[in-house]
């Protein structure tokens, strides 16, 4: 209660300022600066040079060279994104796959999280471990494992044949189904854990109150459980949707060679065509697309913090 124990804003020590500064410095050094570099490259022109774009920024040359540098920047890379249907269809395909697989993840992940939250206390730790356990193996190895499972004479087809479910082995690998299987498998924990976190601290007496007021259990699920789990559902969905849009490894290894997701297009521009400006433009637009759900996510989180729950 004494004023001395309540530090005022202007009385912050250097130590306190440093602590606040560190995350900002980190973000500036490892996120903002790289982004500005990518943004600058996206405004450059392709060139058979080292590095493969022009103009180069020479800050030692004074004001005149700087003006020349700026005048050589162009939006040609961005114009190509619109004019060449390859890019638009890649973006579209990425968004469609991300949307569809997020929906699948939600349908699959919610019951898992619900089951975990309602399991006896002493089991919850084990279930939690089981969900997290796959992370202890390399992601790449797990995708390769799926390749062998899904290939023509892989485990899946062997099992289907042995059980007599099919006569001729269906093709899994190099199809969109394989992509969905890989994505849903990989991202499931990101959907389950945030939902579990909201369900797990839900007060059991709320359901009793709902029942007491004449609401049967199934209805209470929609009227109480889902609204209260909404922050977890939104967090889980965005946590899945955002990286799936940019996913490269799964469609590249499990998917076919036809239509590409935007991550594959980007990879091709960068390593195949060595067109750094085009690749950078693709990356910048991708980021711009994902800013919307990111800001949405921040907004939801901030609102929850404000409410203090």
């Amino acid at each position: 209660m004494t004023p001395a124990t309540q530090p005022r804003a202007e009385a912050r020590s250097w130590g306190q300022r440093l602590v606040i500064l560190i995350p900002y410095l980190w973000l500036i050094a490892f996120f903002l600066v790289p982004f500005l570099i990518v943004f600058k490259i996206s405004l450059s022109q392709y060139a058979t040079a080292q590095p493969p774009y022009l103009p180069q920024l020479d800050i030692t040359g004074g004001f005149e060279t700087l003006r020349e540098f700026v005048s050589e920047l162009s939006f040609a890379g961005y114009a190509r994104l619109v004019s060449d249907s390859l890019y638009l269809s890649s973006y579209g395909r990425s968004l469609a796959i991300a949307l569809a697989s997020t929906a699948m993840l939600l349908v699959l992940g919610f019951p898992i999280a619900y089951g975990m939250a309602r399991a006896p206390r002493q089991w919850q730790g084990v279930l939690f471990m089981l969900i997290v356990l796959p992370f202890w193996t390399s992601f790449l190895i797990r995708v390769y494992a799926w390749m062998t499972i899904l290939q023509r004479d892989g485990l899946l087809n062997q099992a289907l044949l042995a059980l007599g479910i099919v006569d001729t082995p269906p093709v899994w690998i190099s199809t969109d189904i394989a992509i969905f299987i890989g994505i849903v498998y990989t991202y499931l924990p990101f959907m389950v854990l945030p939902i579990y976190a909201t369900l797990e601290r839900m007060d059991e007496s709320l359901f009793e109150a709902a029942a007491d007021l004449g609401c049967p259990r199934w209805k209470a699920f929609w009227l109480v459980t889902v609204p209260l789990a909404l922050p977890g559902i939104i967090a889980g969905s965005l946590l899945c949707f955002i990286p799936i849009v940019g996913e490269f490894v799964i469609p590249d290894l499990l998917g076919g060679s036809g239509a590409m997701m935007i991550g594959q297009t980007l990879w091709l521009e960068f390593f195949g065509n060595r067109d750094w400006p085009a690749a950078s433009a693709v990356a910048v637009v991708l980021l711009a697309l994902l800013i919307v759900p990111l800001v949405l996510y921040q907004h939801v989180q901030a609102r929850r913090l404000e409410r203090g729950d």
């Binding site: 007060d203 007496s205 109150a209 007491d212 109480v224 209260l228």
Partner: peptide, 12 residues
């Protein structure tokens, strides 16, 4: 109907 000790009001 019951009035709960924790009140159990729906927070949403």
């Amino acid at each position: 109907n019951m009035m709960f000790q924790s009140y159990a009001l729906f927070p949403h």
